[in-house]
Structures are given as C-alpha cells and as structure tokens.
Write a protein that binds this DNA or RNA. Structure first.
Lengths: 141, 141
DNA sequence: AGATACTTGACTATTTTAGTCAGGTTTATA
DNA sequence: TATAAACCTGACTAAAATAGTCAAGTATCT
C-alpha cells in the first residue's frame, strides 16, 4: 500500500499555496520551483482541484490560484478526493445483496477492510489544511 | 492509495488456515478452492509467510501448512510485512541529516505522512489473526 | 502587442501488480 | 517401492497504473 505522488503533490502544493494565500494569487510556476514539482504535472493536478472547487483560478499576468474556501474548511479528504486518490481496500462487489463476489456470504475479511478504510478516512477527515500550515509554522520557529 | 491483492489474499488465507489449524495441516489446494485464490499465487505468498516464520510447512501427502505461532500473536503488521506490503507514505530520503531530498529543511508535509503512517500501523499492530477469526465466527452465529 | 499564466487533451516510458508456467523435491500410503 | 499429493523455486509476462511530458491553445494584465 503506497500513497501516490499525485496525492502527495496535491497536498504539498496546497500547503504552499495556503501560506501565501492572503496576499496574491500564487502561480503554479512559483509552486513548481519551490516544491520541485513539474509544472505540467501541477497543471493537471490543479485542474482537478479547481473542478472540485477547492481552488479558484485567476487568469492573465499576475494570475495564479487562490484557495476557494478557508484553510480550516479544506480537509485532506477533500483534497484526495479531488485528485482521485481514494482509499480503497475492498474489491468485493457490493451489488450482490449480502455476499461478496457472488457468494452467499461476505468474504472472511470483509469487515476488516471496511474498518481499515474508516480508520484511514477518519484521519483524513480530521486534518485540515490549516492544521498543516500551523504545524509547519511552529516547527520553523 | 490501494491495498494490493497480495496483502488481502495473505490475510484471507491465514484466516482460513487459522480456523482449521488445530486439527491437521491445511493444504493450499483447499484454501485455493475455498477462497478462490490461484494455487500458484498462494504458493508465492506462503513461501514468504514461511520465511518470516508465520507458518510452518508439512511436506508430503496429507501435508500443508500450520500456524507457527498462536493466532493471538500474529498481528496484521507481521502479515503485511511478510508479503512486502508496507505502508509507505514518504518518499523523502532520510540520509541527508535533517532535510528531505537534499534540501536543508523537511518538506512541507513530512510530518503529515509520518503521522499517517503511524496511524495506519497502529491499526495493523492491534489487530491479530485471532480477532479476525472471532469476528468471523460471531457474524456467522 | 506581448508576456504571463491558466487550460486541455493526447501521448508515453516506466514500474507495479497479479498472476502463470515449468520444473523440480519431499513424504505418506497403498 | 511406486505414485500421487503437496510443498518449493525461479523465471516469465500481460495488463494496469503511475508519473509524468508535449503540444497547442485561451485569457488577461500592462
């Protein structure tokens, strides 16, 4: 089980963005330079973040991106969701009423994966962008 | 982020094994049939489980596998570890003394991924094979 | 007008996953 | 002792996912 770069980059970029947010739109170019992430890749990522209304874009010179909500209201869940980084533990198809994979009963470990999924999602639900920025600021002092 | 089949299969197979453990060695063929996992793939998985001393093999006719420890003492951590299913969140190389990726400071989200890793591992550390077998038995009653 | 920066979609190399396949070795039992 | 059940090992591979790149725009500030 591995977290993908896309998810990590999205979070890194948003933390970077959040730190400068109050002043001006932040250009992807700046984020790219500061965080060492390819500009083209960032564009893909921000396109998704925009569609999910996590950021707003400002076109033209001096343009860039701005948070679309307060940092406090942006949870990790939202970010991962936007870039299609879902936690997925169970493959069992749920269409058959009670069982997994067409069998009559749930597979031996069905509940386990459900629990795990909840456990991880709880973590993501609780952490907000604001938390991350704060944590970062404090470490630096 | 996705759990791979190898990890899921390993856990499923061990739960299956644990249920019959007290009587006789359980053959992979039986597990394969009951759980719908390819025999060849199971062999790969059990080879790893054996090397990490989670199971013991009994060769020859009527042979199979037996748990090498009490179900209570086998934690999910051990299982995932054995089949190389580690939770890996951070890519940052740790060799540079304080920073990530050769930079002077930790990357903006370093602590976050560490926390997440711990959060997930806590879950794995606490769940034992026994818990899973019990949970399964209770559901069935 | 020109530069900056967003926007979109197609393309691709690499890696990982999820197995398969082939050819063993060991041992209980008929 | 022959044979079949079952473990054991390593090499191979198709398919999917990942991590990007590339190209060709469009919008807007100065």
């Amino acid at each position: 089980m591995k977290l993908t770069s896309k998810g990590r980059y999205a979070v890194m970029a948003l933390v970077d963005l959040a730190r400068f947010n109050n002043i001006n739109p932040v250009s992807l170019r700046d984020i790219s330079l500061r965080q060492g992430i390819s500009l083209d890749y960032l564009e893909q990522i921000f396109s998704k973040l925009r569609k999910k209304e996590i950021v707003q874009s400002v076109r033209g010179t001096q343009g860039g991106y701005v948070l679309n909500k307060k940092a406090k209201e942006i949870k990790l869940t939202n970010i991962f969701d936007a870039v299609d980084e879902k936690v997925k533990t169970v493959q069992c198809k749920k269409d058959s009423k009670k069982g997994c994979n067409g069998k009559a009963t749930k597979c031996l470990t069905h509940n386990l994966w459900d629990e795990l999924e909840n456990h991880i999602n709880n973590f993501f639900d609780e952490k907000s962008l604001e938390d991350l920025v704060k944590d970062n600021f404090e470490r630096r002092v």
